[in-house]
Design a binder for these strands. Structure first.
Lengths: 123, 123
DNA sequence: CTGTATCCTACCAGATACTG
DNA sequence: CAGTATCTGGTAGGATACAG
Protein backbone atom coordinates (compact mmCIF):
# COMPACT_ATOMS: atom_id res chain seq x y z
CA UNK A 1 0.00 0.00 0.00
CA UNK A 2 2.87 2.35 -0.61
CA UNK A 3 2.06 3.71 -4.01
CA UNK A 4 -0.82 5.67 -5.34
CA UNK A 5 -1.46 2.98 -7.87
CA UNK A 6 -2.64 0.86 -5.00
CA UNK A 7 -5.18 3.47 -4.07
CA UNK A 8 -6.56 3.44 -7.58
CA UNK A 9 -9.62 1.39 -8.20
CA UNK A 10 -7.64 -1.44 -9.71
CA UNK A 11 -9.33 -4.70 -8.78
CA UNK A 12 -6.63 -6.81 -10.34
CA UNK A 13 -4.14 -5.21 -8.05
CA UNK A 14 -6.34 -5.88 -5.09
CA UNK A 15 -6.72 -9.59 -5.76
CA UNK A 16 -3.06 -9.84 -6.54
CA UNK A 17 -2.18 -8.40 -3.18
CA UNK A 18 -4.13 -11.26 -1.73
CA UNK A 19 -2.96 -14.23 -3.74
CA UNK A 20 0.46 -13.09 -4.86
CA UNK A 21 1.74 -14.41 -1.57
CA UNK A 22 4.05 -17.35 -2.02
CA UNK A 23 1.91 -19.61 0.14
CA UNK A 24 -1.61 -18.17 0.12
CA UNK A 25 -3.01 -20.14 -2.77
CA UNK A 26 -1.43 -23.31 -1.51
CA UNK A 27 -3.08 -22.91 1.86
CA UNK A 28 -6.44 -22.19 0.29
CA UNK A 29 -6.15 -25.25 -1.91
CA UNK A 30 -5.23 -27.45 1.03
CA UNK A 31 -8.13 -26.14 3.05
CA UNK A 32 -10.57 -26.55 0.20
CA UNK A 33 -10.03 -30.27 0.69
CA UNK A 34 -11.33 -30.01 4.23
CA UNK A 35 -10.81 -28.46 7.65
CA UNK A 36 -7.34 -28.65 9.05
CA UNK A 37 -5.52 -27.89 12.25
CA UNK A 38 -2.56 -25.57 12.49
CA UNK A 39 0.26 -28.07 12.70
CA UNK A 40 -1.48 -30.32 10.26
CA UNK A 41 -1.28 -27.53 7.69
CA UNK A 42 2.28 -26.83 8.69
CA UNK A 43 3.25 -30.41 7.98
CA UNK A 44 1.40 -30.65 4.69
CA UNK A 45 2.81 -27.41 3.36
CA UNK A 46 6.39 -28.39 3.59
CA UNK A 47 8.77 -25.50 3.77
CA UNK A 48 6.58 -22.91 5.45
CA UNK A 49 7.67 -21.63 8.81
CA UNK A 50 5.49 -21.39 11.85
CA UNK A 51 5.60 -17.64 11.88
CA UNK A 52 4.75 -17.19 8.23
CA UNK A 53 1.89 -19.67 8.38
CA UNK A 54 0.54 -17.94 11.43
CA UNK A 55 0.69 -14.54 9.79
CA UNK A 56 -0.80 -15.84 6.58
CA UNK A 57 -3.74 -17.51 8.28
CA UNK A 58 -4.42 -14.36 10.19
CA UNK A 59 -4.44 -12.36 7.00
CA UNK A 60 -6.67 -14.85 5.22
CA UNK A 61 -9.05 -14.88 8.14
CA UNK A 62 -9.16 -11.11 8.15
CA UNK A 63 -10.06 -11.15 4.48
CA UNK A 64 -12.83 -13.61 5.17
CA UNK A 65 -11.25 -16.28 3.02
CA UNK A 66 -10.73 -18.79 5.80
CA UNK A 67 -12.45 -19.28 9.12
CA UNK A 68 -10.91 -20.18 12.44
CA UNK A 69 -12.59 -22.22 15.13
CA UNK A 70 -11.14 -22.78 18.57
CA UNK A 71 -12.03 -25.81 20.67
CA UNK A 72 -11.37 -25.42 24.39
CA UNK A 73 -9.67 -28.76 24.74
CA UNK A 74 -6.42 -29.28 26.61
CA UNK A 75 -4.27 -28.42 24.89
CA UNK A 76 -6.29 -26.14 22.72
CA UNK A 77 -7.39 -27.27 19.27
CA UNK A 78 -7.84 -24.88 16.36
CA UNK A 79 -9.46 -25.77 13.10
CA UNK A 80 -9.10 -23.76 9.96
CA UNK A 81 -11.59 -24.03 7.14
CA UNK A 82 -12.11 -22.33 3.85
CA UNK A 83 -15.10 -20.03 3.60
CA UNK A 84 -17.53 -19.87 0.68
CA UNK A 85 -15.79 -16.67 -0.37
CA UNK A 86 -12.45 -18.41 -0.26
CA UNK A 87 -13.88 -21.24 -2.29
CA UNK A 88 -15.01 -18.98 -5.10
CA UNK A 89 -11.56 -17.43 -5.14
CA UNK A 90 -9.74 -20.74 -5.40
CA UNK A 91 -12.17 -21.77 -8.11
CA UNK A 92 -11.25 -18.66 -10.03
CA UNK A 93 -7.57 -19.19 -9.48
CA UNK A 94 -7.92 -22.63 -10.95
CA UNK A 95 -8.37 -20.92 -14.31
CA UNK A 96 -4.76 -19.94 -13.97
CA UNK A 97 -3.83 -23.50 -13.24
CA UNK A 98 -5.45 -24.57 -16.45
CA UNK A 99 -3.59 -21.87 -18.32
CA UNK A 100 -0.36 -23.01 -16.72
CA UNK A 101 -0.84 -26.61 -17.66
CA UNK A 102 -1.54 -25.63 -21.24
CA UNK A 103 1.19 -23.07 -21.65
CA UNK A 104 4.12 -23.93 -19.44
CA UNK A 105 5.79 -25.81 -22.29
CA UNK A 106 5.73 -22.62 -24.35
CA UNK A 107 7.24 -20.63 -21.53
CA UNK A 108 9.95 -23.20 -21.02
CA UNK A 109 10.62 -23.16 -24.73
CA UNK A 110 10.75 -19.36 -24.77
CA UNK A 111 13.23 -19.38 -21.91
CA UNK A 112 15.37 -21.96 -23.62
CA UNK A 113 15.45 -19.84 -26.76
CA UNK A 114 16.16 -16.64 -24.82
CA UNK A 115 18.93 -18.20 -22.79
CA UNK A 116 20.43 -19.64 -25.93
CA UNK A 117 20.63 -16.22 -27.53
CA UNK A 118 22.07 -14.75 -24.34
CA UNK A 119 24.77 -17.38 -24.18
CA UNK A 120 25.74 -16.71 -27.78
CA UNK A 121 25.84 -12.97 -27.20
CA UNK A 122 28.09 -13.16 -24.20
CA UNK A 123 30.40 -15.53 -26.00
CA UNK B 1 13.19 -21.79 -6.20
CA UNK B 2 14.41 -22.57 -2.76
CA UNK B 3 11.92 -25.14 -1.65
CA UNK B 4 11.04 -28.55 -2.86
CA UNK B 5 7.48 -27.46 -3.33
CA UNK B 6 8.68 -25.37 -6.20
CA UNK B 7 10.18 -28.38 -7.82
CA UNK B 8 6.89 -30.21 -7.62
CA UNK B 9 4.72 -30.22 -10.67
CA UNK B 10 2.48 -27.51 -9.33
CA UNK B 11 1.35 -25.39 -12.27
CA UNK B 12 -0.44 -22.90 -10.07
CA UNK B 13 2.79 -22.20 -8.32
CA UNK B 14 4.52 -21.74 -11.62
CA UNK B 15 2.07 -19.17 -12.95
CA UNK B 16 2.06 -17.44 -9.60
CA UNK B 17 5.79 -17.03 -9.73
CA UNK B 18 5.23 -15.18 -12.95
CA UNK B 19 2.33 -12.90 -12.15
CA UNK B 20 2.69 -12.51 -8.42
CA UNK B 21 5.12 -9.72 -9.15
CA UNK B 22 3.81 -6.38 -8.01
CA UNK B 23 4.05 -4.88 -11.49
CA UNK B 24 3.95 -7.75 -13.96
CA UNK B 25 0.24 -7.85 -14.58
CA UNK B 26 0.07 -4.09 -14.81
CA UNK B 27 2.75 -4.06 -17.50
CA UNK B 28 1.01 -6.81 -19.43
CA UNK B 29 -2.28 -4.97 -19.28
CA UNK B 30 -0.68 -1.72 -20.46
CA UNK B 31 1.01 -3.51 -23.34
CA UNK B 32 -2.13 -5.34 -24.32
CA UNK B 33 -3.44 -1.91 -25.31
CA UNK B 34 -0.62 -1.55 -27.81
CA UNK B 35 3.13 -1.37 -28.29
CA UNK B 36 5.00 0.96 -26.02
CA UNK B 37 8.46 2.33 -25.58
CA UNK B 38 10.48 1.98 -22.41
CA UNK B 39 10.07 5.42 -20.94
CA UNK B 40 6.51 5.56 -22.11
CA UNK B 41 5.78 2.53 -19.96
CA UNK B 42 7.76 4.04 -17.14
CA UNK B 43 5.63 7.16 -17.20
CA UNK B 44 2.34 5.32 -17.47
CA UNK B 45 3.11 2.94 -14.65
CA UNK B 46 3.61 5.54 -12.03
CA UNK B 47 5.77 4.43 -9.16
CA UNK B 48 7.93 1.86 -10.87
CA UNK B 49 11.64 2.51 -10.94
CA UNK B 50 13.82 2.32 -14.00
CA UNK B 51 15.71 -0.64 -12.67
CA UNK B 52 12.69 -2.66 -11.70
CA UNK B 53 10.93 -2.02 -14.99
CA UNK B 54 14.04 -3.02 -16.84
CA UNK B 55 14.38 -6.25 -14.89
CA UNK B 56 10.72 -7.03 -15.22
CA UNK B 57 10.64 -6.51 -18.98
CA UNK B 58 13.66 -8.75 -19.33
CA UNK B 59 11.95 -11.45 -17.31
CA UNK B 60 8.71 -11.15 -19.26
CA UNK B 61 10.62 -11.27 -22.51
CA UNK B 62 12.45 -14.36 -21.35
CA UNK B 63 9.15 -16.04 -20.58
CA UNK B 64 7.92 -15.16 -24.05
CA UNK B 65 5.13 -12.98 -22.69
CA UNK B 66 6.35 -9.76 -24.23
CA UNK B 67 8.52 -9.06 -27.25
CA UNK B 68 11.19 -6.44 -27.65
CA UNK B 69 12.06 -4.72 -30.89
CA UNK B 70 15.01 -2.39 -31.32
CA UNK B 71 15.06 0.33 -33.98
CA UNK B 72 18.53 1.62 -34.88
CA UNK B 73 17.55 5.25 -34.69
CA UNK B 74 19.63 7.89 -32.92
CA UNK B 75 19.07 7.70 -30.10
CA UNK B 76 17.91 4.13 -30.13
CA UNK B 77 14.21 3.30 -29.97
CA UNK B 78 12.87 0.18 -28.31
CA UNK B 79 9.33 -1.02 -28.58
CA UNK B 80 7.78 -3.54 -26.26
CA UNK B 81 4.71 -5.49 -27.27
CA UNK B 82 2.65 -8.24 -25.76
CA UNK B 83 2.91 -11.64 -27.42
CA UNK B 84 -0.01 -13.94 -28.19
CA UNK B 85 1.07 -16.03 -25.23
CA UNK B 86 1.07 -12.97 -23.02
CA UNK B 87 -2.36 -12.09 -24.32
CA UNK B 88 -3.86 -15.41 -23.34
CA UNK B 89 -2.37 -14.99 -19.90
CA UNK B 90 -3.80 -11.53 -19.36
CA UNK B 91 -7.13 -12.79 -20.63
CA UNK B 92 -7.02 -15.51 -18.00
CA UNK B 93 -5.98 -13.10 -15.32
CA UNK B 94 -8.98 -10.98 -16.17
CA UNK B 95 -11.08 -13.72 -14.57
CA UNK B 96 -9.50 -12.66 -11.32
CA UNK B 97 -10.40 -9.08 -12.02
CA UNK B 98 -14.00 -10.07 -12.42
CA UNK B 99 -13.86 -11.97 -9.16
CA UNK B 100 -12.32 -8.93 -7.49
CA UNK B 101 -14.99 -6.58 -8.70
CA UNK B 102 -17.68 -8.91 -7.47
CA UNK B 103 -16.18 -9.77 -4.14
CA UNK B 104 -14.08 -6.91 -2.89
CA UNK B 105 -17.01 -5.50 -0.93
CA UNK B 106 -17.23 -8.78 0.98
CA UNK B 107 -13.52 -8.70 1.73
CA UNK B 108 -13.72 -5.13 2.92
CA UNK B 109 -16.68 -6.07 5.07
CA UNK B 110 -14.84 -9.08 6.49
CA UNK B 111 -11.88 -6.90 7.35
CA UNK B 112 -14.09 -4.33 9.00
CA UNK B 113 -15.67 -7.02 11.12
CA UNK B 114 -12.33 -8.62 11.95
CA UNK B 115 -10.74 -5.33 12.91
CA UNK B 116 -13.75 -4.47 15.01
CA UNK B 117 -13.38 -7.65 17.03
CA UNK B 118 -9.65 -7.06 17.38
CA UNK B 119 -10.18 -3.58 18.69
CA UNK B 120 -12.66 -4.81 21.25
CA UNK B 121 -10.33 -7.59 22.35
CA UNK B 122 -7.37 -5.32 22.93
CA UNK B 123 -9.56 -2.89 24.83
C1' DC C 1 -1.10 -27.75 20.47
C1' DT C 2 -1.13 -23.12 18.86
C1' DG C 3 0.69 -19.61 18.70
C1' DT C 4 3.76 -14.89 20.01
C1' DA C 5 8.30 -12.51 20.65
C1' DT C 6 12.87 -11.71 19.46
C1' DC C 7 16.82 -11.62 16.90
C1' DC C 8 19.17 -11.94 12.68
C1' DT C 9 20.20 -12.34 7.89
C1' DA C 10 19.52 -12.17 3.02
C1' DC C 11 17.43 -10.22 -0.46
C1' DC C 12 14.90 -6.60 -2.88
C1' DA C 13 13.76 -2.25 -4.27
C1' DG C 14 14.88 2.80 -4.49
C1' DA C 15 18.13 6.39 -5.53
C1' DT C 16 21.81 7.94 -8.02
C1' DA C 17 25.18 8.15 -11.37
C1' DC C 18 26.94 6.67 -15.44
C1' DT C 19 27.20 4.50 -20.62
C1' DG C 20 26.16 3.59 -25.61
C1' DC D 1 16.38 7.16 -25.26
C1' DA D 2 17.26 2.93 -23.04
C1' DG D 3 19.36 0.95 -20.22
C1' DT D 4 23.50 -0.84 -16.60
C1' DA D 5 26.28 -0.41 -12.19
C1' DT D 6 26.66 0.45 -7.50
C1' DC D 7 25.40 1.54 -2.97
C1' DT D 8 22.25 1.39 0.66
C1' DG D 9 18.17 0.95 3.78
C1' DG D 10 14.01 -1.39 4.77
C1' DT D 11 11.65 -5.64 5.17
C1' DA D 12 10.19 -10.28 4.67
C1' DG D 13 11.29 -14.54 6.31
C1' DG D 14 14.07 -18.26 9.00
C1' DA D 15 15.59 -19.93 13.53
C1' DT D 16 14.94 -20.10 18.15
C1' DA D 17 12.87 -19.62 22.52
C1' DC D 18 9.05 -19.06 25.14
C1' DA D 19 3.83 -18.65 26.67
C1' DG D 20 -1.16 -19.90 27.31
Amino acid sequence: MKFDVYAENCPTRLVMDRIADKWAVLVLVKLSAGKMRFNQLRREIEGISQKVLSQLLKKLERDGLVSREVFPTVPVTVEYAITPLGQTLTATVSALTVWAEENMPRIIEAQRRYDGVEARESA
